[in-house]
Design a protein around this nucleic acid. Sequence first.
DNA 1: TTGACAAGCGACCATCGGTCGCTATATAAT
DNA 2: ATTATATAGCGACCGATGGTCGCTTGTCAA
Lengths: 205, 205
Amino acid sequence: MPKGIMLTPEQQAERREEIVGVALRLIEETGFPKTSMREIAASANMGKSSLYDFFKTKDEILVYAVEKKTEEIIQKVHGIIAGESSPEQRLRKIMLNHLGVPKRYRTALMWLNTESDYLEEEYRERLRAVRYAYQDMIKSVIENGVAAGVFRETDADLMARLLINSVLSILYTSRPSADPEKMLDETMNIFLHGIMTGRPKEGGA
Amino acid sequence: MPKGIMLTPEQQAERREEIVGVALRLIEETGFPKTSMREIAASANMGKSSLYDFFKTKDEILVYAVEKKTEEIIQKVHGIIAGESSPEQRLRKIMLNHLGVPKRYRTALMWLNTESDYLEEEYRERLRAVRYAYQDMIKSVIENGVAAGVFRETDADLMARLLINSVLSILYTSRPSADPEKMLDETMNIFLHGIMTGRPKEGGA
DNA sequence: TTGACAAGCGACCATCGGTCGCTATATAAT
DNA sequence: ATTATATAGCGACCGATGGTCGCTTGTCAA
């Protein structure tokens, strides 16, 4: 608030978080394209140009928010992997953790998932980094499971992508068929055991 | 092209298709937000305002394109269901058919998947209609499979959503782990049989 | 030849993301 | 106490955007 004094790094960080919080709320209500920097500024009780002292562009607000949240998720996943040795339970817990991202991130996550290819190089790179870090952790869990004979041979990278995407689609759906935990549980059952009653035939399709 | 004469409905439709084609190409190259109506008009060799004689808004171009394509897909799915009685093969063929949507629709489909909640009511409704028509067909196939004892009891609606979403994510990924048909085949194996080597335990997680 | 009508477009509008330079204030130096 | 310096914050402005409106240009019917 005060003019003339320098903001401490802590104050800077606090203001950034405040802006991100306000922005995520507006974006979930209205959608990213329809949420203007003017609105965000007004809701954060500052002039529009002041926003640009904290974030270089509108896109960066989203990128920053998702980057931070993904880093948080990655940290928790490290804990999960360390504390759980069953590949199945690892996957289930990782996905349950993912499901726990606050609702206000829903639209932001979907937006970046869709638009990341068209962002500026810097943002693409930042998102790519955290996303692949996360995806590769899941991939490793799967590969370990395969090595241990708990999972069959499969495309671990594809599997990881499908899992992440499925959680996202559970979070985002406007027509849930059950509550999120139930849907996730059934989703994991499907991914782990499939929906067929019989044994798979040799050779697949 | 000619001024002063009335366009026949066929000509109108032809012009619309031309605009859609041009728009989809630009949108896949540049992304939807960064593709301007001015660019689309220029690429379609017409003045910007003439675009608005064929489509009410920029959004409507996308909605129209996806609506039409989804209707096409639905028609083909009717044929697949009629010509194939095995629930497993029905699902595999439906998804393979879905995978066949031309690449230029990729970005459009993703965009609408992300943004549909924030579109104008009319567009939301149009998209909802075709999307649920498609989703419900898949749901029925699954439910029939369950009734026939080929599939176990499951949340058919969730399963249908996951399948559709997974195909979309195969189409859209910027880092494919194999060619699309291979990825789809493995995806279907996962959904049908899971990745676990052992039998599922009673009670799940 | 003329009247009616529609295709097509140029000019305009509010709003957008983003920039720039001014103002106001708190500290540091004298 | 006064001045110089540095910076938080903002109002005014920019080019571009999606969308609108009324004019021009051409064709057909009378």
